[in-house]
Amino acid sequence: MDETAVVAGETEVATGADWNPVERVILERRSVRKYKDRQVPENVVRRILEAGRFAPSAGNAQPWKFIVIRDRAMLDEMERDVVRLCKVFKFFLDWRTSPLGRSATWLMAQTFIRIKRNQLHPIPFGAITLIAEGKLRAFHGAPTLILLLEDRRGVSRPQVDIGCCGENIVLAAQSMGLGTCWVGFVELLKYGLKWRKRLGIEFPYRICEGICLGYPVGNPQGMIEREVMDVDWYEDGAMRKVRQGGDDVTV
């Protein structure tokens, strides 16, 4: 190894110091939902996947596999199938529009939300309707889609490792001027045999997440305001609650 590490030893950070390049990439990254038609060069995609390959994982299990899809016709077909599935979900679960009647659908929704509490959170619930109605595009018209497959035999929690790996991919892409967006809706494709067969996905692999990749239209990146999170802070025998806006309350 002839390259020296960027951060050597303990680096002092002054209070209120300017953002370093890594922080900038992290803080300015926004999900991109409108892409140019221009395809991402192959070497760039390979480079981004390298960042994913070096993500931390439990027990160094590296429980991931990547599938890169850059075929426009194939992406369109996948999108069509996602829309079709969303229409099915909408038919059975959306009590606002379902022809099955409001009360029957509402009961069904209440039951299924309790079974799939995360997948049917109100936010994806709304997105299902938007996708089914064609108002929202599942893959946002991105020229490249990276599918992250999870190796189900991974150490402890493979899905967390997929998250680390994906975040590496997304931040590396951001640093190269690309736009990215996580698309959890690719998960729907695992319910049918069609795409599992076509993409050759079988045990131990399972579709976990997808990442759209492409050049953004306009300039969607930038620092925004976001809610402040409370932090409980234990130090020197006391507990502080770091509250909104950074005002500390010692308990």
């Binding site: 110091a17 953002w19 109100p122 305001e225 809610e227 402040v228 409370d230 909104q244 806006g245």
Partner: peptide, 16 residues
């Protein structure tokens, strides 16, 4: 069931 917990007002990234 989905109520938000431990969140405060909106703020841009803060330099500490």
């Amino acid at each position: 069931y989905y109520k938000k917990l431990n969140r405060g007002a909106f703020a841009p990234p803060r330099r500490y």
